[in-house]
Design a protein around this nucleic acid. Structure first.
Length: 472
RNA sequence: UCCAGCUUAGCUCAGUCGGUAGAGCAGGUGACUGUUAAUCACCGGGUCGCUGGUUCGAGUCCAGCAGCUGGAGCCA
């Protein structure tokens, strides 16, 4: 008797005629008056279930087997045989079916063998992994995460775990979640009647990180090629299909590199991830593609899109050029494109979907709309920033070459009303062996949305956290 | 945060001109069948989001509130 995964059995890795045991959950059960029941069992190891054929000669046939409904857990022991029916190559002829856990009230068990809406499934986030769709998304997410680590490892990068709790103002922007152990109702006060954070756990104000970039730059200027991959938090009141309050971000940083090298890295990176997912999870991608509609998947033709992506080179255009293209286009925009203003979502979508039809890297943005750490270009008006835009989603990656010259960095900070003295250790990096370096940030869930063709980022992460929602 | 829409059975939805609610799926029972989200018949299942208003009468019209969704902004 050998315990096997459904994946192993269906892939033909188990010898026909051998005694096996599978453990999992009932997807559907059908009874036949020929004296057998067909039970589709899934254990999450792959998209397809295995069919267990349970004869009515089993001792618990009437008492338990016929009570099995969608969602019940069970252990099946029997012989792996070639299927007599159509639709599957192998099945298990059961000698024993052990009902491990029944479903309390089958009528109200939320996961029915039908297509549910994404909204309903979010309300049962603890049960939605049992659906085909969320099983597929979860496996794709894993494959993508592993592909990311593998890509960086193969390219000689080192994974750096930057802190989740930080006292820095980070990028000055991004609303942050406060971390405190003070009594909210009765906090200690200082002489100005303000809250005395010297008495707080860290002796100062602390927050959840909005980016690991500043910290990882320090490791970049020692280990040359580094990246972060970890949880990130934004307390912005964003209610969209593209924002989460808690998400996972990937931030590579490369030394002795300029913006062009950064864009090269972004292109190799995205293609490598997509290639890996196409190679490893085609079964799940195919399933997701079939479910396009009112459910979780809303974007059609996702496999084709990924295959085109890995085969096409990225178009590169200057920000100034992008503005000219938008102005020349006959398309009516809600917001008029104008040099010095950031590109709107509608502009980004036009560039990548209508104008080019492929991924686009927009480079060198006006300095006033970008962060303080981005490198000032020789024209004195733009900084070495880039955004990677992809059809169907818009901005997927944002990156830049960092300002490695201390005097320029200080000038940029002051121009943005930041106090250089507050960034002592960050400025040190420019004082001690500074080198040109660059990097980018990628929201992991946005990548999953793109790969899986999802309509909402809340379905790309197991337990989404958004304004007004932190259930489960 | 702003704008718009939605809220009816366990789920997905219909509900006409204001007259006390229907379907499919799911569930139960039975029939049938090496079945494939099986098929067929029958049965059970409702605080129409909440509060108030108009009206003889409100799922339906009006107002407020709540929740959710979509778009925008912010961004990854």
């Amino acid at each position: 008797m050998r315990n096997i995964s459904v994946k192993g059995a269906l892939a033909g890795q188990v010898e026909v005629g051998s005694k096996v045991e599978v453990r999992g959950w009932v997807r559907t059960r059908r009874d036949s008056k020929a004296g057998i029941s067909f039970i589709h069992v899934t254990d999450g190891s792959c998209q397809d279930p295995i069919q267990v054929v349970a004869p009515n000669t089993l001792g618990n046939y009437a008492s338990e087997v016929q009570r099995l409904s969608t969602g019940c857990s069970l252990i099946c022991r029997g012989t792996l045989v070639q299927s007599q029916g159509k639709g599957q190559a192998f099945e298990i002829q059961a000698d024993e079916v052990i009902a491990v856990g029944f479903v309390d009230d089958p009528e109200t068990y939320p996961v029915q063998p039908k297509q549910h809406t994404a909204e309903f499934l979010r309300e049962v986030a603890h049960l939605r992994p049992r659906t085909n769709t969320f099983g597929a998304i979860t496996r794709v997410r894993h494959a993508a995460a592993m592909a990311i680590h593998r890509f960086f490892t193969d390219e000689g990068f080192v994974w750096v775990n930057t802190p989740i709790i930080t006292a820095a103002d980070a990028e000055g922007a991004g609303q942050m979640f406060r971390v405190s152990t003070l009594d909210l109702a009765n906090p200690p006060r200082n002489e100005q009647k303000g809250v005395d954070f010297h008495k707080d756990f860290f002796g100062k104000e602390a927050y959840l990180t909005v980016s690991g970039q500043l910290n990882v730059e320090a490791y970049c200027l020692a280990l040359s090629k580094v990246y972060t991959f970890g949880p990130t938090f934004r307390a912005e009141n964003s209610n969209t299909t593209r924002h989460l309050a808690e998400f996972w971000m990937i931030e590579p940083e490369i030394a002795f590199a300029d913006l062009s090298a950064d864009a090269d890295l972004a292109e190799r990176f995205l293609k490598a991830i997509f290639r890996a997912v196409l190679a490893e999870r085609m079964d799940d991608l195919k399933f997701l593609e079939q479910t396009v509609g009112k459910g979780v998947v809303t974007q059609a033709g996702l496999i084709d899109r990924l295959e085109k992506f890995v085969d096409s080179s990225f178009e590169r255009i200057e920000y100034s050029e992008a503005i000219e293209i938008l102005k020349r286009s006959k398309k009516k925009f809600e917001y008029q494109p104008e040099w010095g203003k950031d590109l709107q979502t509608e502009h980004e979508r036009f560039l990548t979907e209508d104008h080019v039809g492929r991924p686009v890297v927009v480079m060198n943005y006006p300095e006033q709309i970008k962060a303080f750490y981005m490198r000032m270009n020789d024209d004195g008006k733009t900084v070495a920033a880039m955004d990677v835009l992809a059809p169907g989603i818009g901005e997927i990656i944002g990156g830049s070459q960092r300002e490695e010259r201390l005097d320029h960095l200080d000038a940029r900070m002051r121009a943005m009303s930041l106090v250089p003295e507050h960034y002592g250790w960050y400025r040190d990096l420019r004082r001690y062996g500074s080198v040109p370096h660059a990097g980018f940030g990628l929201g992991f869930e946005r990548l999953i949305v793109y790969i899986c063709g999802l309509g909402n980022i809340r379905d790309a992460i197991p337990y989404p956290r958004v304004p007004g929602w932190a259930q489960f």
